[in-house]
C-alpha cells in the first residue's frame, strides 16, 4: 500500500496555503530575482520586498556586515515604491500560482492606509504583511512596533482598508513582545509574523569605525534562531490568531522547531542568500518528517511541544 502524502496545507484567516513555507520579505526581492533558481510555484507563499508609497533610496553603504553565523543589514527600506511595484513587478508575480503577500511600510498611519486601499484593488495580492518596525515620523520617530498603542492604530488602519488577511510583522526589539502581539490581535490582525531582525552592530578594529554606515543594523541568520523561537513560543501562548515563525531558519529541522513551538507556518529569510534552494528543501523535509512520524497533517505538528 502506497503511503499517503502528508497534508501540508495550512490556513491564515481566509488564506489557504499549499504548504507552510514562505519567503521572508527583503530576502527574496520581488520573486523574479530567484525565478531561475527556485520553483516559485512550489512555495507556500511569496512575500515581496517591503513597499512604501513613494520609492526609497535607502541608506549609504556599507549596508551589510557578516557576523558569526549571521549578518547585519541596514538597507534603509530601499524599494521601488507602490506605483513601480504595480507596473513593473506585479505582472511577473501574476503569472505565478503561489499566493502573493505584499509587505508594506510607511511613515504615518495614513501611509499604511493608502497602501492597503490601493493593494486591496489587486486581486493577486492575497494578503498584506505590515512592517511595523519603521519609525512613526509623527511620533518623534519611535517605531510603531515598539508601542502597543501605535501598533494597534496602524493595524486597525490597514484592517479597515484591506478585505483579505492582514499579517503584522513584529519587532523583537521590545521589552514584551506579547503585549504588542495582543494589541495587534485586538486591532483585527489575522496573524502575526515574528521576528524581524534584532538590532545590533559591528566595529572594524582596523579603521576603528562601525562596519555599517548606519552604525546599527538588523541581525539575521542562524545566530538569532533561539531568540525567534523563544518569542514565537511566548506569543503563541497569549494570542489566538495564527503565528508565523521567522528567524534563522536554514533547515527543515529549524522550521519544525518553530512549528512545534506554536507557529503554523514559517518564513525563510537570510538563507535565501546562501542557498536559494533552501525553501524547497524545507518543504520537502517537513513533509518527510510528517510521514516518518505518522502525522496526518500540519495540525498534528503545530504547537506540539507546548502540549502537556
Amino acid at each position: 500500500m502506497a503511503l499517503e502524502e502528508p497534508d501540508m496545507k495550512i490556513s491564515i484567516g481566509s488564506l489557504r496555503l499549499r504548504n507552510p513555507v514562505m519567503t521572508a520579505s527583503g530576502t527574496f526581492g520581488y520573486g523574479e530575482e530567484y525565478g531561475s533558481l527556485v520553483n516559485l510555484h512550489r512555495l507556500g507563499a511569496i512575500i515581496v520586498k517591503g513597499i512604501s508609497l513613494l520609492p526609497r533610496q535607502g541608506t549609504p553603504p556599507p549596508r551589510i556586515a557578516e557576523t558569526a553565523c549571521g549578518m547585519l543589514n541596514a538597507i534603509g527600506l530601499e524599494n521601488v515604491g507602490l506605483e513601480r511595484f504595480l507596473s513593473e513587478k506585479l505582472p511577473f508575480l501574476q503569472g505565478i500560482s503561489t499566493p502573493l503577500i505584499v509587505n508594506i511600510l510607511g511613515d504615518t498611519v495614513q501611509d499604511y492606509e493608502q497602501l492597503a486601499a490601493r493593494l486591496n484593488e489587486e486581486e493577486k495580492v492575497a494578503a498584506l504583511e505590515v512592517n511595523i518596525s519603521c519609525p512613526n515620523v509623527k511620533q518623534g520617530g519611535v517605531a510603531f512596533g515598539t508601542d502597543p498603542g501605535m501598533a494597534h492604530a496602524v493595524t486597525k488602519g490597514v484592517r479597515q482598508h484591506f478585505s483579505r488577511p492582514v499579517i503584522v510583522k513584529l519587532s523583537p526589539n521590545v521589552t514584551d513582545i506579547s503585549e504588542i502581539a495582543g494589541a495587534v490581535e485586538e486591532a483585527g490582525a489575522d496573524a502575526v509574523s515574528l521576528i524581524n531582525t534584532v538590532l545590533g552592530m559591528a566595529i572594524d578594529i582596523e579603521s576603528c569605525r562601525p562596519k555599517l554606515a548606519n552604525i546599527f543594523g538588523g541581525l539575521s541568520g542562524p545566530a538569532i534562531k533561539p531568540i525567534g523561537l523563544r518569542m514565537v513560543w511566548q506569543v503563541a501562548e497569549c494570542v489566538s490568531i495564527p503565528v508565523i515563525g521567522i528567524g534563522g531558519i536554514t533547515t527543515p529541522e529549524d522550521a519544525i522547531e518553530y512549528i512545534l513551538a506554536g507557529a503554523c507556518a514559517v518564513q525563510v529569510g537570510t538563507t535565501n542568500f546562501i542557498n536559494p534552494k533552501a525553501s524547497e528543501e524545507i518543504i520537502q523535509g517537513i513533509g518527510a518528517y510528517l510521514t516518518e512520524h505518522s502525522m496526518a497533517s500540519m495540525q498534528d505538528l503545530i504547537g506540539r511541544a507546548r502540549r502537556v
Binding site: T27, E33, P60, P61, P62, I64, I75, E78, N272
Partner: peptide, 17 residues
C-alpha cells in the same frame, strides 16, 4: 567589488552611489 550577500539583486546590500 563590494561586500555582497545574495549576488542576485534581492538583498540590496551592494549599493554604490
Amino acid at each position: 567589488e563590494t561586500i555582497m550577500a545574495c549576488g542576485l539583486g534581492a538583498c540590496l546590500g551592494c549599493a554604490v552611489l
